[in-house]
Simulated scan of single mutants.
Amino acid sequence: MVRPLSVKLVVEVLRGVAQVDFMPSAVCGLLFVVALFAAGWQYGVYGLLGSAVSTAAGYGLRLRRDTVEAGLTGCNGCLVALGCAVFLDPGRPATVVVAVLGAVVAVVVTAGLGVLLEGRGLPALTAPFCLVATAVTVAAPGFRRLWPESGGPAALPVPATGGTGLSWEHLWHGFFANIGQVFLMPQWYVGLLFLAGLFAAGRLAGLMACVGSATALLTARVFGAPAEAVEQGVLGYSSVLVALALCGVFVAPDGWSAAYAVLGAAAATVLTPALGAVTAPFGGHAFTWPFVLTTLLFLAAVPAIPRLRRI
Rank of each mutant, 00 (worst) to 15 (best):
M1K: 07
P4I: 06
P4L: 11
L5F: 09
L9K: 04
L9W: 09
V11P: 02
V20E: 06
D21H: 14
P24Y: 09
P24C: 07
S25V: 07
A26H: 15
G29W: 01
F32C: 09
L36T: 03
W41R: 15
Q42K: 13
A52C: 10
Y59C: 04
D66Q: 11
G71V: 04
P90Y: 14
T95G: 06
V97R: 00
V98F: 06
V98W: 00
A99S: 13
A99D: 12
V105Q: 02
G114Q: 03
E118V: 04
A127S: 05
A140C: 08
W147R: 08
G151C: 07
V158M: 04
V158T: 10
P159A: 10
A160P: 07
G165M: 13
H173Q: 14
G180M: 09
Q181H: 11
W188D: 13
G191L: 01
F194H: 04
L195T: 15
L198K: 14
L198S: 14
G206R: 08
G206L: 12
G212A: 02
T215D: 03
A216V: 00
L218R: 15
T219V: 13
G224R: 13
A227Y: 07
V230D: 09
L241N: 12
A243Q: 04
L244D: 09
G248K: 09
G248N: 08
F250A: 08
P253G: 11
W256T: 09
S257T: 11
A258D: 01
Y260I: 02
L271T: 06
L271A: 15
P273A: 14
A274R: 07
A280F: 05
A286G: 01
F287C: 03
F287S: 07
L299N: 03
V302I: 08
P303D: 01
